[in-house]
Amino acid sequence: MDLEREFERVVAADHRIEPRDWMPDGYRKTLIRQIAQHAHSEIIGMQPEGNWISRAPSLRRKAILLAKVQDEAGHGLYLYAATETLGADRAELTEKLVEGRQKYSSIFNYPTLTFADVGVIGWLVDGAAICNQVPLCRTSYGPYARAMIRVCKEESFHQRQGYELLLTMMSGTQQQRDMVQEAVDRWWWPSLMMFGPPDAESSNTEQSMLWRIKRHTNDELRQRYVDMSVPQADKLGVTFPDPELAWNADRGHYDFGEPDWTEFWQVVKGEGPCNAQRVEHRRKAHEDGAWVREAATAYAAKREKAA
Protein backbone atom coordinates (compact mmCIF):
# COMPACT_ATOMS: atom_id res chain seq x y z
CA MET A 1 0.00 0.00 0.00
CA ASP A 2 2.88 2.32 0.79
CA LEU A 3 4.29 1.71 -2.66
CA GLU A 4 1.03 2.67 -4.28
CA ARG A 5 0.77 5.82 -2.18
CA GLU A 6 4.34 6.75 -3.08
CA PHE A 7 3.56 6.21 -6.78
CA GLU A 8 0.50 8.43 -6.56
CA ARG A 9 2.44 11.10 -4.70
CA VAL A 10 5.19 11.16 -7.34
CA VAL A 11 2.70 11.36 -10.20
CA ALA A 12 0.55 14.01 -8.54
CA ALA A 13 3.65 16.12 -7.85
CA ASP A 14 4.47 15.97 -11.60
CA HIS A 15 7.67 14.08 -10.93
CA ARG A 16 8.83 11.15 -13.06
CA ILE A 17 8.33 7.44 -12.57
CA GLU A 18 11.49 5.57 -13.57
CA PRO A 19 11.86 1.95 -14.78
CA ARG A 20 12.89 0.53 -11.39
CA ASP A 21 10.15 2.30 -9.45
CA TRP A 22 7.09 0.40 -8.36
CA MET A 23 4.06 1.04 -10.59
CA PRO A 24 0.52 -0.38 -10.80
CA ASP A 25 0.07 -3.13 -13.40
CA GLY A 26 -2.59 -1.11 -15.17
CA TYR A 27 -0.21 1.82 -15.53
CA ARG A 28 2.49 -0.45 -16.95
CA LYS A 29 0.10 -2.13 -19.40
CA THR A 30 -1.49 1.11 -20.53
CA LEU A 31 1.92 2.64 -21.10
CA ILE A 32 3.24 -0.36 -23.03
CA ARG A 33 0.16 -0.28 -25.24
CA GLN A 34 0.33 3.47 -25.80
CA ILE A 35 4.08 3.63 -26.46
CA ALA A 36 3.98 0.54 -28.69
CA GLN A 37 1.16 2.03 -30.74
CA HIS A 38 3.21 5.17 -31.08
CA ALA A 39 6.29 3.18 -32.13
CA HIS A 40 4.23 1.18 -34.64
CA SER A 41 2.88 4.46 -36.03
CA GLU A 42 6.39 5.73 -36.65
CA ILE A 43 7.34 2.53 -38.45
CA ILE A 44 4.16 2.24 -40.52
CA GLY A 45 4.38 5.99 -41.14
CA MET A 46 7.60 5.43 -43.09
CA GLN A 47 5.59 3.88 -45.92
CA PRO A 48 3.28 6.63 -47.18
CA GLU A 49 6.14 9.11 -47.44
CA GLY A 50 8.72 6.52 -48.42
CA ASN A 51 6.44 5.99 -51.40
CA TRP A 52 7.84 9.22 -52.92
CA ILE A 53 11.58 8.95 -52.19
CA SER A 54 12.41 7.37 -55.54
CA ARG A 55 10.36 9.96 -57.43
CA ALA A 56 11.14 13.19 -55.52
CA PRO A 57 11.43 15.87 -58.22
CA SER A 58 14.63 17.55 -56.98
CA LEU A 59 17.73 16.18 -55.29
CA ARG A 60 17.27 18.51 -52.33
CA ARG A 61 13.71 17.25 -51.79
CA LYS A 62 14.90 13.69 -52.16
CA ALA A 63 17.53 14.20 -49.46
CA ILE A 64 15.04 15.90 -47.12
CA LEU A 65 12.48 13.15 -47.59
CA LEU A 66 14.92 10.29 -47.15
CA ALA A 67 16.31 11.91 -44.00
CA LYS A 68 12.81 12.39 -42.67
CA VAL A 69 11.76 8.80 -43.23
CA GLN A 70 15.02 7.71 -41.63
CA ASP A 71 14.18 9.86 -38.59
CA GLU A 72 10.90 7.98 -38.30
CA ALA A 73 12.76 4.67 -38.09
CA GLY A 74 14.88 6.27 -35.37
CA HIS A 75 11.77 7.41 -33.47
CA GLY A 76 10.38 3.90 -33.70
CA LEU A 77 13.64 2.60 -32.27
CA TYR A 78 13.69 4.81 -29.21
CA LEU A 79 10.03 4.26 -28.52
CA TYR A 80 10.43 0.48 -28.71
CA ALA A 81 13.41 0.91 -26.36
CA ALA A 82 11.12 2.80 -23.95
CA THR A 83 8.67 -0.12 -23.96
CA GLU A 84 11.57 -2.46 -23.17
CA THR A 85 12.22 -0.50 -19.96
CA LEU A 86 8.70 -1.61 -18.98
CA GLY A 87 9.46 -5.26 -19.65
CA ALA A 88 8.08 -5.49 -23.20
CA ASP A 89 10.01 -7.12 -26.05
CA ARG A 90 10.46 -5.42 -29.41
CA ALA A 91 10.19 -8.64 -31.38
CA GLU A 92 6.90 -9.52 -29.67
CA LEU A 93 5.49 -6.08 -30.29
CA THR A 94 6.44 -6.36 -33.96
CA GLU A 95 4.67 -9.73 -34.13
CA LYS A 96 1.57 -8.12 -32.66
CA LEU A 97 1.73 -5.36 -35.26
CA VAL A 98 2.12 -7.65 -38.27
CA GLU A 99 -0.60 -9.96 -36.98
CA GLY A 100 -2.94 -7.00 -36.63
CA ARG A 101 -3.25 -7.41 -32.86
CA GLN A 102 -1.90 -3.94 -32.08
CA LYS A 103 -2.86 -0.72 -33.79
CA TYR A 104 -1.05 2.28 -35.17
CA SER A 105 -2.27 5.75 -36.07
CA SER A 106 -5.04 5.45 -38.64
CA ILE A 107 -3.76 8.43 -40.59
CA PHE A 108 -1.21 6.16 -42.27
CA ASN A 109 -3.99 4.11 -43.82
CA TYR A 110 -4.56 6.89 -46.33
CA PRO A 111 -2.64 6.86 -49.62
CA THR A 112 -0.08 9.47 -50.77
CA LEU A 113 -1.18 10.25 -54.31
CA THR A 114 0.96 13.20 -55.42
CA PHE A 115 4.23 14.79 -54.36
CA ALA A 116 2.23 17.55 -52.67
CA ASP A 117 1.13 14.92 -50.15
CA VAL A 118 4.70 14.89 -48.86
CA GLY A 119 4.41 18.56 -47.96
CA VAL A 120 0.89 18.28 -46.59
CA ILE A 121 1.84 15.34 -44.38
CA GLY A 122 4.72 17.38 -43.01
CA TRP A 123 2.55 20.38 -42.35
CA LEU A 124 -0.75 18.89 -41.19
CA VAL A 125 -0.04 15.34 -40.09
CA ASP A 126 3.22 16.15 -38.34
CA GLY A 127 1.58 19.31 -37.01
CA ALA A 128 -1.24 17.29 -35.48
CA ALA A 129 1.28 14.78 -34.14
CA ILE A 130 3.20 17.61 -32.49
CA CYS A 131 0.04 18.93 -30.82
CA ASN A 132 -0.58 15.44 -29.47
CA GLN A 133 3.00 14.81 -28.48
CA VAL A 134 4.32 18.02 -26.97
CA PRO A 135 2.30 17.47 -23.77
CA LEU A 136 3.81 13.98 -23.59
CA CYS A 137 7.25 15.53 -23.06
CA ARG A 138 5.94 16.06 -19.50
CA THR A 139 4.29 12.68 -19.18
CA SER A 140 4.78 10.84 -15.89
CA TYR A 141 6.95 7.99 -17.20
CA GLY A 142 10.55 9.21 -17.47
CA PRO A 143 11.88 7.22 -20.46
CA TYR A 144 8.77 8.04 -22.49
CA ALA A 145 8.94 11.73 -21.64
CA ARG A 146 12.61 11.91 -22.60
CA ALA A 147 12.06 10.03 -25.86
CA MET A 148 9.22 12.41 -26.69
CA ILE A 149 11.40 15.48 -26.26
CA ARG A 150 13.70 14.22 -28.98
CA VAL A 151 10.84 13.02 -31.18
CA CYS A 152 9.09 16.39 -30.91
CA LYS A 153 12.20 18.32 -31.85
CA GLU A 154 12.59 16.29 -35.01
CA GLU A 155 8.87 16.30 -35.82
CA SER A 156 8.81 20.02 -35.59
CA PHE A 157 11.70 20.24 -38.00
CA HIS A 158 9.81 17.95 -40.38
CA GLN A 159 6.75 20.14 -40.11
CA ARG A 160 8.76 23.17 -41.04
CA GLN A 161 10.23 21.39 -44.05
CA GLY A 162 6.81 20.21 -45.19
CA TYR A 163 5.37 23.70 -44.98
CA GLU A 164 8.38 25.12 -46.81
CA LEU A 165 7.81 22.61 -49.65
CA LEU A 166 4.21 23.78 -49.91
CA LEU A 167 5.20 27.47 -49.89
CA THR A 168 7.63 26.72 -52.72
CA MET A 169 5.02 24.81 -54.71
CA MET A 170 2.49 27.61 -54.23
CA SER A 171 5.01 30.02 -55.75
CA GLY A 172 5.30 27.77 -58.83
CA THR A 173 2.85 26.93 -61.59
CA GLN A 174 -0.95 26.82 -61.41
CA GLN A 175 -0.72 23.05 -61.78
CA GLN A 176 1.39 22.94 -58.61
CA ARG A 177 -1.00 25.21 -56.67
CA ASP A 178 -3.91 22.99 -57.67
CA MET A 179 -1.94 19.96 -56.58
CA VAL A 180 -1.34 21.47 -53.12
CA GLN A 181 -5.02 22.42 -52.65
CA GLU A 182 -6.15 18.97 -53.75
CA ALA A 183 -3.80 17.33 -51.25
CA VAL A 184 -4.99 19.65 -48.46
CA ASP A 185 -8.59 18.73 -49.29
CA ARG A 186 -7.79 15.04 -48.91
CA TRP A 187 -5.74 15.29 -45.67
CA TRP A 188 -7.61 17.93 -43.63
CA TRP A 189 -10.36 15.74 -42.20
CA PRO A 190 -8.15 12.72 -41.55
CA SER A 191 -5.71 15.02 -39.72
CA LEU A 192 -8.52 16.22 -37.42
CA MET A 193 -9.33 12.59 -36.69
CA MET A 194 -5.78 12.04 -35.44
CA PHE A 195 -6.85 13.44 -32.04
CA GLY A 196 -9.21 10.53 -31.58
CA PRO A 197 -12.96 10.40 -31.07
CA PRO A 198 -14.85 13.20 -29.28
CA ASP A 199 -14.27 13.27 -25.50
CA ALA A 200 -17.74 11.92 -24.83
CA GLU A 201 -16.85 8.71 -26.68
CA SER A 202 -13.23 8.35 -25.58
CA SER A 203 -12.91 5.45 -23.16
CA ASN A 204 -9.38 5.73 -21.79
CA THR A 205 -9.14 9.42 -21.12
CA GLU A 206 -10.03 9.71 -17.42
CA GLN A 207 -7.62 7.17 -15.95
CA SER A 208 -4.84 8.25 -18.30
CA MET A 209 -5.29 11.88 -17.25
CA LEU A 210 -5.05 10.83 -13.60
CA TRP A 211 -1.85 8.95 -14.30
CA ARG A 212 -0.51 11.94 -16.26
CA ILE A 213 0.03 9.68 -19.27
CA LYS A 214 -2.36 11.94 -21.10
CA ARG A 215 -2.53 15.62 -20.25
CA HIS A 216 -5.25 17.13 -22.44
CA THR A 217 -8.47 15.74 -23.83
CA ASN A 218 -8.92 14.89 -27.51
CA ASP A 219 -11.25 17.83 -28.11
CA GLU A 220 -8.91 20.32 -26.40
CA LEU A 221 -6.02 19.24 -28.60
CA ARG A 222 -8.17 19.24 -31.75
CA GLN A 223 -9.26 22.82 -31.06
CA ARG A 224 -5.67 23.88 -30.50
CA TYR A 225 -4.63 22.28 -33.79
CA VAL A 226 -7.39 24.02 -35.76
CA ASP A 227 -6.55 27.37 -34.17
CA MET A 228 -2.91 27.02 -35.17
CA SER A 229 -3.52 25.66 -38.65
CA VAL A 230 -5.98 28.24 -40.01
CA PRO A 231 -3.52 31.18 -40.04
CA GLN A 232 -0.93 28.93 -41.68
CA ALA A 233 -3.41 27.98 -44.40
CA ASP A 234 -4.10 31.68 -45.00
CA LYS A 235 -0.42 32.44 -45.31
CA LEU A 236 -0.01 29.54 -47.71
CA GLY A 237 -3.02 30.52 -49.81
CA VAL A 238 -5.07 27.34 -49.43
CA THR A 239 -8.46 26.69 -47.87
CA PHE A 240 -9.72 23.87 -45.69
CA PRO A 241 -12.72 21.93 -47.03
CA ASP A 242 -15.01 22.89 -44.15
CA PRO A 243 -17.87 25.38 -44.75
CA GLU A 244 -18.41 25.70 -40.99
CA LEU A 245 -14.88 26.87 -40.31
CA ALA A 246 -15.15 30.43 -38.89
CA TRP A 247 -13.59 32.59 -36.19
CA ASN A 248 -15.73 32.78 -33.07
CA ALA A 249 -14.82 35.99 -31.24
CA ASP A 250 -16.82 35.03 -28.13
CA ARG A 251 -14.92 31.81 -27.64
CA GLY A 252 -11.62 33.15 -28.95
CA HIS A 253 -11.35 30.02 -31.08
CA TYR A 254 -12.28 28.81 -34.54
CA ASP A 255 -15.54 26.93 -34.88
CA PHE A 256 -15.30 23.94 -37.18
CA GLY A 257 -17.40 21.12 -38.56
CA GLU A 258 -17.65 17.57 -37.35
CA PRO A 259 -15.32 15.00 -38.95
CA ASP A 260 -17.00 11.95 -40.45
CA TRP A 261 -16.74 9.64 -37.47
CA THR A 262 -18.24 6.76 -39.43
CA GLU A 263 -15.23 6.91 -41.72
CA PHE A 264 -12.94 7.18 -38.70
CA TRP A 265 -14.29 3.97 -37.17
CA GLN A 266 -14.20 2.19 -40.54
CA VAL A 267 -10.51 2.96 -40.91
CA VAL A 268 -9.79 2.05 -37.28
CA LYS A 269 -11.51 -1.29 -37.84
CA GLY A 270 -9.34 -2.05 -40.85
CA GLU A 271 -11.41 -0.87 -43.78
CA GLY A 272 -9.28 2.13 -44.72
CA PRO A 273 -7.80 2.55 -48.20
CA CYS A 274 -4.38 1.18 -47.20
CA ASN A 275 -4.76 -0.84 -43.96
CA ALA A 276 -4.05 -4.22 -45.54
CA GLN A 277 -1.25 -2.88 -47.74
CA ARG A 278 0.61 -1.17 -44.86
CA VAL A 279 0.55 -4.21 -42.58
CA GLU A 280 1.47 -6.55 -45.42
CA HIS A 281 4.46 -4.35 -46.36
CA ARG A 282 5.71 -4.43 -42.78
CA ARG A 283 5.05 -8.17 -42.45
CA LYS A 284 6.96 -8.90 -45.66
CA ALA A 285 9.98 -6.82 -44.60
CA HIS A 286 9.97 -8.54 -41.22
CA GLU A 287 9.70 -12.05 -42.68
CA ASP A 288 12.15 -11.43 -45.52
CA GLY A 289 14.66 -10.23 -42.94
CA ALA A 290 14.25 -13.17 -40.58
CA TRP A 291 17.23 -15.09 -41.98
CA VAL A 292 19.44 -12.01 -41.60
CA ARG A 293 18.47 -11.55 -37.95
CA GLU A 294 19.03 -15.26 -37.33
CA ALA A 295 22.46 -15.04 -38.95
CA ALA A 296 23.43 -12.07 -36.78
CA THR A 297 22.29 -13.88 -33.64
CA ALA A 298 24.09 -17.09 -34.62
CA TYR A 299 27.28 -15.19 -35.41
CA ALA A 300 27.19 -13.33 -32.10
CA ALA A 301 26.66 -16.59 -30.23
CA LYS A 302 29.63 -18.22 -31.99
CA ARG A 303 31.81 -15.25 -31.18
CA GLU A 304 30.81 -15.34 -27.55
CA LYS A 305 31.57 -19.05 -27.36
CA ALA A 306 34.98 -18.52 -28.95
CA ALA A 307 35.87 -15.70 -26.57
Binding site: A63, Q70, G76, A285
Partner: peptide, 29 residues
Protein backbone atom coordinates in the same frame (compact mmCIF):
# COMPACT_ATOMS: atom_id res chain seq x y z
CA UNK B 1 20.06 1.85 -51.72
CA UNK B 2 17.09 4.04 -50.84
CA UNK B 3 14.82 1.28 -52.14
CA UNK B 4 15.53 -0.50 -48.84
CA UNK B 5 13.82 2.25 -46.86
CA UNK B 6 11.09 0.56 -44.74
CA UNK B 7 12.18 -2.87 -46.07
CA UNK B 8 15.37 -3.64 -44.14
CA UNK B 9 15.74 -6.77 -41.98
CA UNK B 10 15.94 -4.71 -38.79
CA UNK B 11 15.20 -1.09 -37.86
CA UNK B 12 18.85 -0.38 -37.10
CA UNK B 13 19.71 -1.54 -40.60
CA UNK B 14 16.96 0.58 -42.13
CA UNK B 15 18.59 3.59 -40.47
CA UNK B 16 22.08 2.53 -41.57
CA UNK B 17 21.20 1.93 -45.24
CA UNK B 18 19.28 5.21 -45.42
CA UNK B 19 22.29 6.92 -43.91
CA UNK B 20 24.61 5.49 -46.54
CA UNK B 21 22.16 6.46 -49.29
CA UNK B 22 22.04 9.99 -47.86
CA UNK B 23 25.82 10.29 -47.75
CA UNK B 24 26.02 9.23 -51.38
CA UNK B 25 23.23 11.56 -52.40
CA UNK B 26 25.10 14.38 -50.69
CA UNK B 27 28.27 13.50 -52.61
CA UNK B 28 26.27 13.29 -55.84
CA UNK B 29 24.81 16.76 -55.33
Amino acid sequence: LAEWCSRAPELEEDVALANIALDLLGQAR
